[in-house]
Amino acid sequence: MASDGVVVEIGKVTGSVGTTVEIPVYFRGVPSKGIANCDFVFRYDPNVLEIIGIDPGDIIVDPNPTKSFDTAIYPDRKIIVFLFAEDSGTGAYAITKDGVFAKIRATVKSSAPGYITFDEVGGFADNDLVEQKVSFIDGGVNVGNATPTKGATPTNTATPTK
């Protein structure tokens, strides 16, 4: 695992066909100046998982989280898009600690492993708008004895992609 920078880890949970599971997305290594904004994309298989919603985690402190935390689910493109932009203008609602960034709610549709993997990152910046190093650890849903650990090695991303 990367020793510096922010680590975004997609949790690994267990479920069975027809059940709804909650998959946490963790941030670790949050910089001392916090995270003022970030955007990134995960990939998944809508034939295996139906993403039914995404909720902000406990490290989102904006009293009205829909102003700073936004997501979009595109089953036709097989992606989930995340956007966080601190909304106070003063840094008061920045992410300042490690913990759960988001909770992905999904219904298991198939007995195949439900991988959720890193696809791309736009950027991560602290309260001074300084770009942060970030790496990703894939996860998803274990169905029966299947284990979604494909790509469990962190993917280092030093520069934003478009």
Rank of each mutant, 00 (worst) to 15 (best):
V6C: 02
V6T: 07
V8K: 01
E9K: 09
E9H: 07
G11V: 09
K12W: 10
V13H: 03
G15S: 06
S16E: 15
V21F: 13
V25K: 02
V25R: 00
R28Y: 15
G29M: 03
P31G: 14
K33E: 02
N37A: 14
N37G: 15
V41S: 01
R43N: 15
Y44E: 14
D45C: 07
L49K: 15
G53L: 08
I54P: 05
P56Y: 07
G57K: 14
D58Y: 06
I59N: 08
I60E: 15
D62L: 14
P65L: 13
T66H: 14
F69W: 15
D70I: 15
I73K: 03
Y74F: 02
Y74K: 00
D76W: 02
K78S: 11
K78T: 04
I79Y: 13
I79A: 01
I80S: 14
V81W: 01
V81E: 01
F82V: 02
F82Q: 07
A85K: 02
D87Q: 15
S88Y: 13
S88Q: 09
S88M: 07
S88P: 02
T90H: 08
A92D: 13
A94C: 11
I95V: 04
K97V: 11
D98H: 08
F101G: 04
F101T: 08
A102C: 13
A102V: 05
K103W: 13
V108Y: 13
K109Q: 07
K109F: 15
S111E: 10
P113I: 02
P113A: 07
P113F: 05
D119G: 06
G122H: 00
A125P: 00
D126N: 14
N127P: 01
D128H: 07
D128K: 04
L129E: 01
L129D: 00
V130Y: 11
V130P: 00
S135Q: 12
F136D: 10
I137C: 06
D138F: 06
G139C: 09
G140R: 13
G140E: 06
G140N: 14
N142F: 07
N142E: 09
V143N: 05
G144R: 12
G144V: 10
N145S: 09
T147E: 13
G151A: 12
G151V: 14
A152W: 04
A152H: 11
P154G: 11
T159D: 15
T161F: 12
K162T: 04
